[in-house]
Design a protein around this nucleic acid. Structure first.
Lengths: 404, 404
DNA sequence: CAAGGGATCTGAATCGTTTCAGATTTCAGG
DNA sequence: CCTGAAATCTGAAACGATTCAGATCCCTTG
């Protein structure tokens, strides 16, 4: 590992003239006998030179195989890249697997596209060798969007440390003042103004707790007293299973925490005999939802309804019910969260959230931040959508007559 | 439009010292009284300076609020960005809506992540004002991956013109020699070697036609003679509907062309009375599939089976069948393409393709190209997966007895 | 004819790094 | 005490563009 680079002894094999690999602005300028400024202007400010000369410049550029100004150099000089980074704390592999995420990203991309901004996907490497913060720290971007990061995580700190336009999705904006969270220690540098991040940061959320409350209340109104809860991950990589009170206290992901809070609030407002049985899915996939459901129903056979924190998990629950021969909704009610495009087909009762609008709002917030403004945080509403997967608790063991 | 930039007359409000916005390497160096090279080395080559000095450097950097070397400048100097562009010719908005695309992108991202490469999404702007080629031409990337571009399109040419490592997905690598397609006219510059793109380009495809052939043959084996075909887009933005022979001749998207070819090949090898009824979906969404199916069945009531070019379209077909009260598979057989994760739940007979592996292979090919090698093109297999959505053509109007 | 004003074009600074090729210091071995 | 080699550190040249502040030149106007 000592000898890193071999000396470039004998140059390259067959290369006579000075021009080596890539053609530059300068070479075009030289070929024409004009200044580099002129060539640059030919591309960027046609009004700064005569049409005739411009034509000649573009012609020789073509002849030489020059494909236009190097984007990188241009970005460096201009001070912006035209790229917005999207930070994901989970492996990208299954960022895409989640339809809700895909939907969000799609509408986000679309709204940014209007301003000619492209999306750079930044995920922490699964490989534990490499620094998980490297992508965030090393990305050439004009702004960052944080899609889901654990509260108080290194990742989030790394994002804030870049002190650039940032939009936090489904996540409270960390308070900067008291915490000394992200701002470096510049006590002994009083002339450097402690630029508050708040001016460069904006938040877009949904009413997570509210939706969850509606869902839980719906089940309780239907008479269910033993309700299983399929939770999204509570914290980074732990592996799912029954949720202990201690683990519930340490929940790190904001949407999970909020939805849980909503469930609990509804519980507190309802009949006192109602009980919640929590279990945590290892990942947000149908198959994890299926596994969790099977385990949960095995250990708590009295459960007659399931609160799922995502439609994806609910889909797994539906599968599990089918496997067990439990008819939905008569023997088991299932309720999801997100209202994915496919959920209507499944007749899934669920909590709708404005996923597309969220993406759009995030894009708009970013655009405003880039424009130097500080948009107010927004909080979007959620709604309960009742379909066919929930019904009143069966009062007897005999199945109710199927309707229709 | 004449007066573009106001003169920076009175500087900024409250800023005394020389250090304005962002801290740079140089300022850290100056604060410490060392050279910039040393500060740079502190970050990039710890072995090039004493541990003690390195600590001091890092400390003052922290104190000053310096977040490390600027990624952009670093990229410019080093000659690589750590970013791979993914080119999409459709609006990104629904690149994400297609689960097959999402799956592919996920595994692609994962395989690139191993080499610390991130994905930049490059989509042509829907806005007709802005140049659709700009994203491709202006992206700071080390390589490009083309996911779906019309053959012979401007977009594809723009990609090839950048002459950088490129992987073409589900698309033949354009021949470079005779066509004078992308290489600029450098006839009068004989010392510039006409670098062949082939060495920097690689292709990854699936056996599109083969899978399609299997699907069509399967239906014909089941006795179907009037078969509807739900096509993916044949060419850029046209708007769907029945496919005229002329339009079929001009098909621009390679996977569409290949699948169509497969269907036709099977047809040619089967009983002569079999007929295909082609219709084109405007976009690859369930609702477009539904619309197409309704129209198709209305105009051709004798159709007893549907060949869909994607599972997404097939999902729409299933919906349409339900709307019409046609039982699947007894009154109508439906067959898809892709085998999405959700398709098993729908009991959809379909053509499986190794979507994840495709993403992985593309990533690997890119890595090899970046390493200076030229990987061979690969072609991955497809398979027919028979589930419950296909059955023998009903010989009478009366429905068969439902099984199980 | 002088003055003024556009239209064109150029020089040079700058963006913020990395890295090569020394310069200087340190130190073990003889 | 001398000699090299190893360890540290530095100066300066890239990387490839953009852009401001002129310098020229030409033409109208008084």
């Amino acid at each position: 590992m000592s000898s890193s680079s071999a000396p470039p002894s004998s140059a390259s094999p067959s290369r006579a003239s000075q021009s080596s690999g890539r053609i530059t602005l300068r070479e075009v300028a030289r070929a024409l006998g004009v200044s580099v400024a002129t060539v640059s202007n030919a591309y960027n400010r046609p009004d700064q030179l005569s049409a005739a000369l411009r034509e000649r410049v573009l012609d020789t550029a073509r002849t030489l195989g020059y494909g236009g100004p190097d984007p990188l150099a241009r970005s460096l000089r201009r001070g912006r890249t035209g790229v917005i980074g999207v930070v994901y704390d989970a492996p990208l592999e299954y960022a895409f697997a989640d339809p809700a995420a895909a939907l969000f990203l799609g509408s986000l991309a679309q709204s940014l596209q209007a301003a000619s901004l492209n999306l750079l996907l930044l995920a922490s490497p699964g490989d534990p060798q490499t620094d998980p913060l490297a992508p965030v720290q090393g990305a050439s971007v004009d702004g960052l969007i944080v899609y889901s990061a654990a509260q108080d995580s290194e990742l989030l700190r790394a994002v804030m440390a870049r002190s650039m336009p940032t939009v936090l999705v489904d996540q409270p904006v960390p308070v900067d003042q008291a915490g000394s969270v992200n701002q470096p220690v510049l006590a002994d540098q009083p002339d450097l103004p402690a630029q508050d991040h708040r001016a460069q940061t904006s938040g877009v959320q949904i009413d997570d707790a509210g939706g969850a409350r509606l869902a839980a209340r719906h089940l309780m109104d239907l008479g269910h007293t033993h309700i299983g809860v399929l939770c999204l991950e509570l914290g980074p990589r732990q592996g799912g299973g029954p949720v202990t009170p201690e683990r519930e206290r340490q929940v790190a992901y904001h949407p999970t925490a909020e939805r849980l809070r909503g469930y609990r609030e509804a519980l507190a407002a309802g009949p006192s005999e109602t009980r919640l049985f929590l279990t945590e899915a290892e990942r947000n996939t149908p198959s994890d939802g299926e596994t969790c459901t099977l385990e949960l129903l095995r250990s708590e056979p009295e459960i007659t309804a399931l609160l799922c924190m995502s439609d994806v998990l609910a889909q797994g629950a539906l599968r599990a019910a089918q496997t067990l021969g439990l008819s939905v909704p008569h023997r088991l009610s299932v309720i999801g969260y997100d209202d994915l495009p496919g959920s209507a087909d499944l007749k899934l009762t669920t909590v709708w959230q404005p996923t597309s609008e969220k993406g759009q709002r995030v894009g708009e917030a970013m655009l405003e931040l880039l424009g130097g403004q500080t948009p107010p945080d927004v909080r979007l509403p959620t709604r309960l959508v009742v379909r066919g997967s929930t019904a009143a608790r069966a009062t007897t063991d005999a199945p109710l007559h199927p309707p229709g």
